Amino acid sequence: MTQPQTFSIASIPGDGIGGEVVAAGLRVLDTIAKQSEGTVEFEVTEYPWSSEYYLKNGRYIPEGGLEELEKHDAIYFGAVGSADVPDHTSLWGLRLAITQPFDQWANIRPVTFLPGVESPLRKADDTELDWIVVRENSEGEYAGMGGRNLSGRGPGNEVALQTSLHTEKGCERIIRFAFDIARTRDVKKVSSVTKSNAQQYGMVLWDEVFVRVAQDYPDVETESVLVDAMSAKFVLYPEQLSVVVASNLHADILSDLGSALAGSLGLAASANLNPERRFPSMFEPVHGSAPDIAGQGISNPIGAISSAALMLDQFGLTAEADRVRRAIENATRAGILPRDLGGESNTVEMTEAIVAQLEAIHAEDLAAV
């Protein structure tokens, strides 16, 4: 009897709606495992690291926590953020405390326009729109370099320095990663985003590396766009986009804009990748902990379920990942939508609608054999 492919997943629901949406994603993964008829299994270990855990223990990740995570094939993350803990403390205490030591330097955030979801963009009504934001995820504006000084001189005299770090190695590896993705797409184009007219050192280095790397990809169209102009392009000319690569901060902002244009931040999926696979990668929805709706059971699970599909891609289960994406599209096309998209479905109802579509797709595939 053939042994099943078994994938070990570390689940970190975190704060707010994180637990609700992670549960939705795991429900979908459980369905995928059942449909495999014993050829694929997911072993899930949950870690209770959250702001509540921090307030009780003085830290988000316990001693030896990273070593424990390193044993798994992937990390499935919900959200972090609480009114009881400053945002910079929670972000650096949990999410960045995983992505940085695990060198998850490539962050991908697809911008997907789903059928049946109304977009604020008029072009979305009659134009096929689909692009990916590739985010440098290890340095840039989130390198954590700097400090606060001179407070001893009295009120009004403190100085805060926040230094962006751009290395040639860091720029090159994320830019090459973006080009490699572009080669897999129908539209082979990479748009590089900087603010090099004002940031004349780090961003100019990025521009120079982009020009050099582009020479190795003569089959891929390129453009370099300032971040303010790219913000406008997202709205005015989104049909010109395929792969957008940018620094940590710029890509963070632009990807949120892209998701809002697609209909809601609740749709946004992301993957924090260590492409060399020296460490596990982490998959998470972009929407955050949403404390205003936490505990009400009305959160949008699509971003988390789409992130689970990205995890399946990382596992090499691309056919299964495509089925999950088709199931999401079929559900929204049928008019089944969560509250943030103007629908009436709560978290569980939306999840079950996607599971029902998964089962229908699986039945069709079996019938076609």
Rank of each mutant, 00 (worst) to 15 (best):
A353D: 01
H72W: 01
D126S: 15
P155F: 13
S164E: 12
R95E: 12
A363M: 02
G266I: 00
I9H: 01
R333A: 15
Q314Y: 08
A262H: 08
I298G: 00
G140T: 05
V193Y: 11
L236V: 14
L249K: 02
E364N: 09
F42K: 10
L91E: 06
N107P: 04
V190M: 05
R109L: 02
V369K: 10
E67Y: 01
D73E: 05
E118N: 13
L241M: 13
D313K: 10
A353W: 10
L337Q: 10
D15C: 04
G342C: 07
K71Y: 01
G93K: 12
P86I: 07
R323S: 15
V369N: 05
D219T: 07
R148H: 04
P280I: 02
P218S: 10
L366T: 12
N149Q: 11
V187C: 11
T31D: 08
Q200P: 00
P62Y: 04
A321F: 08
R333W: 03
G258P: 08
E63N: 13
I61D: 04
D103N: 15
L161H: 02
S224N: 10
V85K: 05
E329W: 04
P301H: 09
V21C: 04
V348Y: 09
V80M: 06
I253K: 07
A232H: 11
D322E: 15
G156Q: 06
A160G: 15
L366Y: 00
R122T: 10
K56R: 12
E344T: 15
V220D: 09
P86G: 11
F315T: 05
P86E: 10
E67L: 04
D322V: 05
P110I: 02
V193C: 12
S50E: 02
Y142E: 02
N272L: 02
P291T: 02
I9K: 08
A260G: 14
L358S: 05
L94C: 10
D340F: 01
L94E: 04
G152K: 13
L249G: 01
Q240F: 09
I253D: 00
S138R: 14
R183V: 06
L257D: 00
G154T: 06
R95H: 14
I61P: 06
V159T: 15
V40K: 14
A319S: 13
W49D: 02
Y237T: 14
L317I: 02
G19M: 02
V227W: 07
F210L: 03
E43L: 10
T332D: 10
L310F: 07
G144M: 05
F113D: 04
V85Y: 05
E68K: 15
L337I: 06
G154S: 08
A23F: 00
S299T: 12
S281H: 03
S164M: 13
A319Q: 13
V22Y: 03
K34D: 11
V111L: 06
S82D: 14
P155Y: 12
V348N: 07
T89F: 00
G154H: 07
